[in-house]
């Protein structure tokens, strides 16, 4: 199994379910990737690189999006 820290919370994946890329993870979470920006280990990952950026167990990822605000 593998563990990812997503938006401050730890999430455990069984070995065969561990997302391989950021795009994979978003699919798994059911999050629409067109509105999301990711920060992996403190590095911003642009949307166009979601499907090519590998995820490794133990990594920290932030998924953010725009919300209404003033």
């Amino acid at each position: 199994m593998g563990l990812l820290k997503i938006n401050g919370k730890e999430k455990i994946f069984p070995d065969n379910k561990m997302p391989v890329t950021i795009a994979d993870l978003l699919r798994h979470l059911g999050v629409d990737s067109t509105t999301v920006v990711a920060e992996l280990e403190g590095q911003i990952i642009e949307r166009k690189n979601f499907s090519t950026t590998p995820l490794l167990a133990g990594q920290t990822i932030e998924l953010v999006r725009f919300v209404p605000g003033g």
Binding site: I6, N7, V31, E62, L63, F66, G70
Partner: peptide, 17 residues
């Protein structure tokens, strides 16, 4: 103007924007 926040991965409500 808009703000930036963590995606709520437990609540996939529609994207208001």
């Amino acid at each position: 103007t808009v703000a930036l926040r963590r995606v709520d991965i437990t609540n996939k409500d529609d994207d208001m924007l």
